[in-house]
Design a binder for these strands. Structure first.
Lengths: 206, 206
DNA sequence: ACCTGAACACCGTTCAAGT
DNA sequence: ACCTGAACACCGTTCAAGT
C-alpha cells in the first residue's frame, strides 16, 4: 500500500522536494486542507515518509512551500487578468477582484493552506512573505494609475488596496465555508460582481 | 498529570457536557485553534478523555457546540452594540461592523473554530445553523430600516447584509493572519473604521 | 447511567542503519 | 548524499469493565 501509486524511477538524484510539493497539492485538493498527512504525500511519490525530512524541516515547511507556490500562481493569474482588461482603471480593479475570487474557487484547498494554518509566525519562510508582496504590488500599481486619472478616490493607496483584498478574500472565504450559498463557479463569480460593484463605487473619486 | 487541574466534585450527575464546552474554549484561547485536543480538554475538567464520548458524538461535535455558543454570544454582542448606537441607520451599520470585528479580535481562537474547520458539511448540527441565522437577522433589520428612511440604497436587503458581513469577516481574518498589520486592538478597530467608511458610502442611497 | 482503563489505528518526528 | 526501518510520544475513537 505504501509503495502504490507508481513513479518507477528512484528519486535518488531526482528532485524529491518539488515532487513532494506537487504531490501535496494533489492530495490537498482531493482530501481537503485537513486531510493532508506527510505519510500520504510521501507514499504518493513512492518514498518513505521519513525521506521528506531531508528536504523540509517539518510538515509546516512543506505547507509553506505549497502556500508560496500558490501565491506566485495567484500573482501570475492576477497580472494576466488585469492586463487582459481593456477598460479603465476601475475596470481593472474589478478584473483584479474577480480573478482573485476565481483563483480561490479553483484551488480551494491550496487557498486554504495559503491563509489557513498560522504559517510564518515569527518570520520563518521569508520567501513566502515575498510572494505575498507580489500580489499587493499588482493592485497598488493600478490604484495609483486610477488615482492619477482621477477615477479612484485620493488617499493612501495601501488602504484602498487592502479594502479590495479584504472584500475579495472575505467573499472567497464565505463561499468556501458555504455561508454564501451559490450553485456553481459561474454563479459565484456573477454574485461577486453584483456585491463588488457598490463597494468599488465607494472607492471611486467623488 | 491527567487528574491535575482540580475540580474536586465528581461530574456524576453534574453537567459534564457544558463543563467540556467551557474547558474547550479556555484551552482554545490558550493553545490556539490547532492545539486543541480532546484529551487535554477532558484532563482540564478532571475526567478521562473517553468520558467525552458519552456527551459528544466526536471531536467535531464538541467543536460545533463551541462554534454555536460563539455565534450566540456574537449575536448578543452585535444586538447590544447596535441598540447602543444613537445615530441613524448608517451609523448603526457602522456600529454593527465594528462590534463584529471587536468580537473576532477578542475571541480569536473561538472565532477560528466558528469559521475554520468545515463543520456542518451535510447538515449536521442544525442548531448551529440557527445561531448563524440570528446574526444575519440583526443586520437585515437595520438595513431595511435604512432603506425605508432613504439612507441605504434600495435593492436586495440580503445582498447588502452579505457585503457588510464579507467585509467585516475579511478584515478580521486578515488581522488574525497578520496580513493586516496593526499594533493592538484599538488600532485594529480604528483602522477598520477607516477602511469601512468608504465601503459603507458605496452602500448609501445615491 | 456515567465514567475508567486498555486497546487500536494513525499521526509527526527522530535516528541509527543501509546504499 | 539520500533514503529506509524501526522506534517514540501523541492523537481520536472504541469497548469491555467497573460503580
Amino acid at each position: 500500500m505504501a509503495k502504490a501509486g507508481a513513479k518507477r524511477g528512484s528519486y535518488h538524484h531526482g528532485d524529491l522536494a518539488r515532487a513532494l510539493e506537487a504531490a501535496a497539492i494533489t492530495v490537498l485538493e482531493e482530501r481537503g486542507p485537513d486531510g493532508l498527512t506527510l505519510r500520504e504525500v510521501a507514499a504518493a511519490v513512492g518514498v518513505t515518509h521519513a525521506a521528506a525530512y531531508r528536504h523540509f524541516e517539518d510538515k509546516t515547511a512543506l505547507l509553506a512551500a505549497v502556500a508560496e507556490q500558490g501565491f506566485r500562481a495567484l500573482a501570475l493569474g492576477l497580472a494576466a487578468a488585469v492586463d487582459r482588461e481593456p477598460g479603465d482603471a476601475l475596470a481593472r480593479l474589478r478584473a483584479f477582484g474577480e480573478a482573485y475570487v476565481a483563483f480561490a474557487l479553483d484551488h480551494p484547498a491550496q487557498y486554504g493552506v495559503m491563509f489557513g494554518p498560522r504559517l510564518n509566525e515569527s518570520g520563518r519562510f521569508p520567501s513566502l512573505e515575498d510572494a505575498i508582496g507580489e500580489v499587493v504590488t499588482i493592485v497598488a500599481k493600478d490604484i495609483k494609475a486610477g488615482q492619477a486619472a482621477g477615477r479612484v478616490r485620493p488617499g493612501r493607496t495601501r488602504d484602498i488596496g487592502m479594502s479590495i483584498w479584504i472584500f475579495s478574500h472575505g467573499y472567497a472565504e464565505l463561499v468556501h465555508r458555504r455561508r454564501v450559498k451559490v450553485k456553481n463557479r459561474a454563479v459565484a463569480l456573477e454574485y461577486f460582481q453584483t456585491l463588488f460593484a457598490p463597494v468599488l463605487r465607494g472607492l471611486e473619486a467623488e
